[in-house]
Design a protein around this nucleic acid. Sequence first.
DNA 1: TTAGGGTTAG
Length: 594
Amino acid sequence: MRLKFKALPGNFFPRNKQSRSRLLCTASISHTFNAPLVSELIAKQHWSELKRTHLTDSNPTKLLQQLFESEVDPDLIFRYFNWSHKELNISHTLELTCRLLHSLATAKKYSKIRAFLDGFVKRNVEHSNFTIFHSLSISSDRFCTSSIIVDMLVLAYAKNLKSHLAFEAFKRAGDYGFKLSALSLNPLLCALVKENKIGQVEFVYKEMIRRKITGDLYTFSIVVNGLCKAGKLNKAGDIIQDMKAFGVLPNVVTYNILIDGYCKMGKLGKMYKAEAILREMVANKICPNEITYNILINGFCKDENVAAGMKVFEEMQRQGLKPNVVTYNSLIDGLCTEGKHEEACDLKDEMLGCGLKPNVVTFNALVKGFCKKKMIREAREVFDDIGVQGLAPNIITYNTLIDAYCKNGMMDEAFLSRSLMWEKGVLPDASTYNCLIAGFGRHGDMEKARDILDEMQNKGLKADLITYNILIDAFCKKGETRKATRILKDVFDKGLSPSHLTYNTLMDGYCKQGNLKAALNVRAQMEKDGKRANVATYNVLIKGFCEKGKLEDANGLLNEMLEKGLNPNQITYEIVKEEMMDKGFVPDIEGHFV
DNA sequence: TTAGGGTTAG
């Protein structure tokens, strides 16, 4: 006999203890599934009773199926599902899992789905997207809920730094026709941008348009940001046109991203373009904010044009916007880079007068400024002042100072500062070690440089490409090109990819030895590695040939460089002037050097 | 509860 409780309203569970135990007993003996009773037990979290009455003869999976069949409240099924997973250590099948998700989606219990998928993704369950999608499709004919679930699955992947799975799920969703939304695709795009997977960002963006998924302001801004970071500035500008066409208007953040992109990644005339975008934004009635001005000021300062930065600084104040610590830091850093440390200090005082407190970045700029001028004592004074101001030097402060000590042959002081870092709980990083390695390398003490490299690796820090570049450079300077070439091999062995600088440094080493054949071999290797010779490559080779008196060959390289669309730079000019023209040789491309 | 700003080393 099957006990029927469906008709009972409200709290049908007998309050009387005696009748309750009689009821439980009956249920257990008759082996029937009593949906209202089970629901009640789950609702009240009477798990031990549930275990005793319903899980002695029947298994947890069967009970789950019965819950589905009786159309019990999805919330309760969800609760039972989690309990049986956690307490009974049951892994329910993917199909039942999907069924649960469908029922939650039908009941619009979205936050529960999100929480569940978050755990599912975190647990690193071995199901592939293929099997998940398949199970979702067969466990319900409700196509719409599948889309919602997949949307939240992509969201869970993206939030848990599994962008490769999120991206794969996005692609597969297209095959199944599941429609995703900005809710998941914005975090996916964000994750891809953070991982520098700009090709995939572009793919997702194009696919969204093809699949008629409407992106929002965030979607477009994230894509603009990704393209800017990759230096694809024209494409980033196109996105702004796209979004307008879709009726989504860019806001101050979108424009700030684009302006910052030009400042950081733009080529010749980049600041002119950055200002042109500012004008465009104002014409579109979008008001620049503090950040817009900070971006421009920093752009000019990094472009070694503090004067222009100052003009923007004044304009900013005319517009009623207040400069903040970042604004001052950019200007102070710019002044320090230009060697104007006195003006930089004045500006620091000015900011104090405005009620702004300098932070560690401010001090780092000043330390760097003094170091650059080899005013090590003054740099140290600023360093010591940081503590007095109630601030703490950070890794960048230490590295800047250590680098300066190393560059000035003060290796003992460099090591003392490194010890101080340990004491203060600021852990040295790869850059710290790179400074020390370069310090020894500069003096040709390769044994000590190697020791530091070993120590670095023993501390669990990975040597990076810069470390290897330093080593190659140091061996070359000692004339030990064979050892330098062996380091290049190490670079590949460590799974790193040599940069132009790596190859150029090695080429320079061979050129300085007069071994032009070996230098050309390095260039061949570099091109085989997919890296086209750049201006620096030609400069190294041209100089090498000139110094060997092979001016005709150097002339040939100059022509080749132009044919490849590379423009000679200041360094090329100096080489050509000193090594060729001053010696009476007139290169074919003389016109370039007038 | 999703997008934007500043610092080092070759």
